[in-house]
Design a protein around this nucleic acid. Structure first.
Lengths: 330, 330
DNA sequence: ATGAAAGCGCTAACAC
DNA sequence: GTGTTAGCGCTTTCAT
């Protein structure tokens, strides 16, 4: 590894001068064009990169940001992977290391938080589920001087900037899509309230009356079995429907399986949409139309916001627009 | 953040003494029991943790290890996530930050490698696909003094320690399982040679003759469509079979879909197994029996090995035993 | 038994 | 225009 010292010695100038020229921060002083050129040339030649440890130590920073991730959207959604990829991209571009922790249960999360003071990070990114128990520990971290940015579906506190996909918009998009396709009676699997709102708004805007019988309630449950249960209930109750807006790809796949068991064809008899645009979409018996939450983009943005906060800037929460990906199921 | 200096000043002793007592490395000298106690008490009271930057700077290390990951096993396999979780666990326990990069195409990987000299890491973990083009760049990194450990299905070079699940064993396990279940004519989707070997070994050990017609060849392809194509070919050629050992969960699911289209029942008429034990298994029309590659364990182990190498120790490649997870499809 | 000093790589205030 | 100095937090050698 080349250091400032190496360059300074080879050129017979002082370390400080090399530092100033390379960083471009000349302070009150200047440098002759000749030395400038020589230093920059040497820098390139030796492929010099400042040692982040030196920089951070001097600046009183840690050269690392913490990332706490709760695997969200269920296994196989690919959300976590996309999110991480986005985060990693931004952090790499800014020469920041990361301190990565996957937490499964909230208990683990709280435990991690209690170690804040010893965690040696410049900032903290928390991604996952917006549990109320998380608010206090996170605020405590903020107060201790470590800026936090969250990536959760509902902002935890006005004090903590958050990034997320527009949740209501997700179901709004897919419901509008099914209406466009000619569906008149669209069923819905209700797990998050915001998504129910998006579904209802789409109906309202198209003058379709809301029918409570078409909504299956299963708060906070997004698994395959819940899609199966929803379809089973509708069929048992004799509810007629020609579309299903599910709140996850897992639910949608479960619904498709159950429809198939009753020889109901997708998309001919019933059109189905999911949420997450996960890899499951292509592993579905009928490729699944789904709404992408754009987690990679969320990760990139959240990391950028956090780095800004580390620098002392103020940032505001951001909302990302979801995208509809149409496949054979609709 | 508490520093050695804080503790030293509060106790009216020298920084050096505090450092020695806390680290336990007393060198040629000693310390009175009284001061020892006082220092350790203060350390606990102030929740002191050495600043990794100071430690690393002094030791000439970088306090970070690089992780290059190629999302393997296809999207949705969950392999990458498990692997990362394992790596993160070990690194956290050892107070090491990481420099995470996801590379999609080999091109990107090579580009990253060329930045080795500037990447400021103590070691490099490479996980993903064992492409031949990767060998040279990785060896170059090794030669430059940065130890590398890989997590790929086939070791790239004797010089680079590797960790992976026993690949042949994976299909050996599932083939034996199907034989146990009474299957006489087991078809196989051949993508990796090692897995074909495992399949053939299981047949041999059970005195079942190998029938080339039962093997569908699709080297290095693990997607849903390849499972579909395999079944289609067997049916077209009039090959009879009562079991399918696929080389990925995606392939297995594709096979199940195609069987279903021909009204062939799983597991009644044909038993099916996959590889990866991915989240897809539970989103399959019939829950899928699969072999787990234990990537979390691989990640933990690989990170441990890399840290040992960083310390200058020599380590040997390791092989992890896969585990069969039996579900309804078999 | 304890401490002073040097130095890892870097930057910034302040000489000259 | 250029250099000197001090110091971020830590460890280790060598005094005392």
């Amino acid at each position: 590894m080349t250091t400032l010292k190496d360059i300074a010695e080879e050129l017979g100038v002082s370390i400080a001068l090399v530092s100033k020229v390379i960083s471009g921060r000349m302070g009150t002083t200047g440098a002759s064009e000749k030395t400038r050129k020589a230093i920059l040339a040497k820098t390139r030649e030796r492929n010099f990169r400042p040692n982040p440890l030196g920089v951070a130590l001097r600046a009183g920073r840690r050269a690392a940001i913490g990332v706490f991730i709760h695997p969200q959207g269920g296994k196989g959604s690919g959300l976590t992977e996309s999110l991480l990829a986005g985060i990693a991209e931004t952090l790499n571009a800014n020469d920041e290391r990361l301190w990565l922790t996957f937490y499964k249960a909230d208990q683990q999360f709280l435990q991690r938080c209690s170690q804040t003071s010893r965690m040696n990070v410049d900032g903290l990114l928390v991604a996952g589920i917006a549990h109320r128990e998380l608010v206090e520990p996170i605020l405590k971290i903020e107060r201790s001087g470590v800026p936090v940015v969250t990536v959760v579906s509902e902002p935890l506190s006005p004090a903590i900037p958050n990034v997320y996909s527009d949740v209501a918009q997700q179901t709004y998009l897919s419901t509008c899509h099914l209406i466009d396709r000619g569906c008149k009676r669209i069923a819905h699997i209700h797990s998050l309230d915001e998504r129910l709102k998006g579904y209802r708004q789409a109906l309202r805007e198209h003058q379709i009356e809301f029918d409570p019988a078409l909504v299956y309630h299963d708060i906070q449950h997004f698994e395959v079995q819940h899609g199966v249960a929803a379809v089973r209930q509708w069929l048992e109750q004799g509810v007629t429907f020609d579309g299903i807006v599910a709140q996850s790809d897992h639910q949608a796949i479960g619904a498709i399986h159950e429809l198939s068991r009753h020889s109901i064809k997708v998309p001919e008899a019933v059109r189905v949409t999911g949420v997450d645009n996960s890899p499951l979409c292509d592993a579905s018996p009928v490729p699944l139309t789904s709404v992408s939450q754009e987690m990679a983009q969320a990760g990139k943005l959240a990391a950028q916001m956090l780095l800004q906060r580390v620098k002392g800037e103020t940032v505001k929460s951001a909302i990302i627009s979801p995208t509809l990906h149409v496949r054979a199921s609709s």
